[in-house]
Design a protein around this nucleic acid. Structure first.
Length: 450
RNA sequence: GUGGCUGUAGCUCAGUUGGUUAGAGCGUCGGAUUGUGGUUCCGAAUGUCGGGGGUUCGAGUCCCCUCAGCCACCCCA
C-alpha cells in the first residue's frame, strides 16, 4: 500500500484509547469499587449498551435528549446508547421485579455515552460505577449509600474528600413556603452555582430568570449562608422551613441520616451539609450526594447520587423507590492523574524469567508454570537476546524480580533471583519442585506489597 | 449547542518583520571485547510543521475551512 493510501489512525472527539499504564490503574479502580460494593451486599448486573429510544427519552429532559447518541438500527428501529446507568436500571427493575424480589441492591460498572462538549475529565465515552438500592424508602438505605461512598473513597486511597449532602425536600419545603415551587427548577439551577459565582449574581439570576422577587431570592440564599458543623447547619435550617410539612420532613430525614453516618464511625470532617447543591437531574426527590476532592475541587463531583422515589413510574405501575450513587471512574482517574496519585506500573506481572540459554527454553517454561501455580504472575522473555537488554526491559516495565538461570545455575540445580529495585541477587535451589525458589519469591513479594 | 485560546519529531518546546537542506532537551533504538538493568560516554533514526484550500516569486510563519485539545457558558461523572 502506498503511503498516500494509509488511513490516519485516530479516535473520535471525546473517545479515547487506554494504554497499559492508564488501563492498569483503571482496572484497579474497578476492582476496588467491586470489592466495596460487594462488601455491602450489592450484586452485579449488566444491561445492553443500546436501548429502545423511547426507554431513554422517557424521563429525560431536553438536556439529556441533546446529549443522547441516537440512530436507527438496520431494521429502522429508533435506538439510543445509554447515557447513564440509572435509566437502564429503572427499565431493568420494572421488567424483572418479580424475579428479583425487593429490596434489590445492585452494582453496575459500565460505559456510557454523552454527545456533549469535551473538557478535562469530561469525555463522550466514559465509565460509571453505579450502586443502587431499589424497593425501600427506609433511611437505612440513605445511610448505607453514604457509607458506601465513604468506604469507596477510602479504599481508593483518597484521604482528602468531602461528601456534600442535601435533601431536595428541604429545598422544596423552603420554596413552598416562599411560594416559589412553580419556578423551582430555575431557582435550584441558580442556587447550584453558589461557590462558583458570588451570591449577588446568583440572586440576580433568580430574579431575572426565575422571576423571583428580591426578597424571595435573599430568603433562598439565606439557606446557603448556613455554614459549619453539620449539626449547627441542621439547627439553622429548622426555622427556615417551619410550617412546610415537606421541609420539616426533609430536615428530620437529614437528621436521621447524619446520626446514622456518625454512629457508623464516619468523621464529621468528611461530611458537609451543603444546602446549595441541587444536582441537575430532575429525578431526585430526597437526599442528594456529591463528593469533592479537597485538592482538586475544580474537576467537579467524582461520586454523585441521591434518592429518587418514582424513577420506574414510566415503565411500571408498581412503586419502586430507589437510592444510589455513581462513581465517575474516568473523571476520578483524570483527577488522580493530575494529583500524581497514579502509580506508573506498566506490567501486571511481578516476575520476569530471562530467556538466557536458548537450549533451556523448556526449563524456563516449566519454571514459569511452577511459579504461576502459586498465583504469582510470570512473564518469560520471548527471545534469547543479550541478558543486559532483557534486564533493561524488566527494569523499564517495572518488574520486581528477574529469574536468571544459565549453565552454571542448572549445573548446581539452582536459579538466581535478582531484586530489580536493589540489584541484589541470590541463589535458590530448584530441587524438589523448586520449593525453595517459590518460597523466596513469595517472601520478597510479601515484603514490598502495597 | 455558544464563545475564546492552542496545534512544530513519541514528550516538552525553540523557530527572528513570510526567504535557501526545520532545531534543542528528554525519550526511543544501537554500541562501549563474549553471563547482569537503572548512572556515564559515543552514535543513529524519526517530522507530509494537525489536515485541506487560498494569498505570494516564496508560508511552520498571513487568510479561510476542517479536525483535535484546553478554557468558559450550559450541563454533568
Amino acid at each position: 500500500m502506498s503511503k498516500s493510501n494509509l488511513i490516519t489512525p485516530r479516535t473520535l472527539k471525546g473517545f479515547r484509547d487506554f494504554l497499559p499504564e492508564l488501563m492498569i490503574p483503571r482496572e484497579h479502580l474497578m476492582e476496588t469499587a467491586r470489592r466495596v460494593y460487594r462488601s455491602y451486599g450489592f450484586s452485579p448486573i449488566d444491561t445492553p449498551a443500546l436501548e429502545h429510544l423511547e426507554i431513554l427519552k422517557g424521563k429525560g429532559s431536553e438536556e439529556t435528549d441533546k446529549q443522547l447518541y441516537e440512530f436507527e438500527d438496520k431494521k429502522g428501529r429508533p435506538v439510543g446508547m445509554r447515557f447513564d446507568l440509572t435509566v437502564p436500571l429503572a427499565r431493568f427493575v420494572a421488567q424483572h421485579a418479580s424475579e428479583l424480589g425487593m429490596p434489590f441492591k445492585r452494582y453496575h460498572i459500565a460505559t456510557v455515552w454523552r454527545g456533549e462538549n469535551t473538557q478535562r475529565g469530561r469525555y463522550r465515552e466514559f465509565m460509571q460505577c453505579d450502586f443502587d438500592t431499589i424497593g425501600t424508602k427506609s433511611v437505612a438505605a440513605d445511610i448505607e449509600t453514604a457509607l458506601v461512598i465513604h468506604d469507596l473513597m477510602h479504599a481508593i486511597g483518597i484521604t482528602k474528600f468531602k461528601i456534600h449532602i442535601n435533601n431536595r425536600q428541604v429545598l422544596n419545603g423552603l420554596l413552598e413556603r416562599l411560594d416559589l415551587l412553580e419556578q423551582s427548577t430555575a431557582i435550584l439551577r441558580a442556587l447550584d452555582k453558589l461557590g462558583k459565582v458570588d451570591a449577588d449574581k446568583v440572586a440576580a439570576e433568580m430574579v431575572a430568570v426565575a422571576g423571583a422577587t428580591e426578597a424571595q431570592a435573599r430568603d433562598v440564599l439565606s439557606l446557603a449562608a448556613l455554614q459549619g458543623e453539620p449539626s449547627s447547619v441542621l439547627a439553622g435550617l429548622a426555622p427556615l422551613v417551619a410550617g412546610s410539612q415537606r421541609g420539616e420532613a426533609g430536615v428530620e430525614r437529614l437528621h436521621e441520616l447524619l446520626t446514622g453516618i456518625k454512629a457508623a464511625g464516619v468523621s464529621d470532617a468528611r461530611i458537609h451539609l451543603d444546602v446549595a447543591i441541587a444536582r441537575g437531574l430532575d429525578y431526585y426527590t430526597g437526599v442528594i450526594f456529591e463528593t469533592f476532592l479537597e485538592d482538586l475541587p475544580g474537576i467537579g463531583s467524582v461520586c454523585s447520587g441521591g434518592r429518587y422515589d418514582n424513577l420506574a413510574e414510566l415503565y411500571t405501575k408498581a412503586e419502586l423507590p430507589g437510592i444510589g450513587a455513581s462513581l465517575g471512574l474516568d473523571r476520578l482517574l483524570a483527577a488522580l492523574e493530575e494529583l500524581n496519585l497514579v502509580e506508573k506500573v506498566r506490567t501486571p506481572a511481578p516476575v520476569l524469567i530471562a530467556y538466557f540459554d536458548s537450549a533451556r527454553f523448556e526449563d524456563y517454561l516449566r519454571l514459569a508454570a511452577r511459579v504461576r501455580s502459586t498465583g504469582v504472575g510470570v512473564e518469560v522473555y520471548p527471545e534469547a537476546i543479550k541478558l543486559g537488554q532483557q534486564l533493561k526491559y524488566a527494569d523499564r516495565r517495572g518488574f520486581r524480580l528477574a529469574l536468571i538461570a544459565g549453565d552454571r545455575e542448572f549445573a548446581s540445580n539452582t536459579c538466581q533471583i535478582k531484586d530489580l529495585a536493589s540489584g541484589a541477587s541470590s541463589e535458590a535451589s530448584l530441587a524438589s519442585n523448586a520449593d525453595e525458589l517459590v518460597e523466596r519469591i513469595l517472601a520478597i513479594l510479601a515484603e514490598n506489597a502495597d
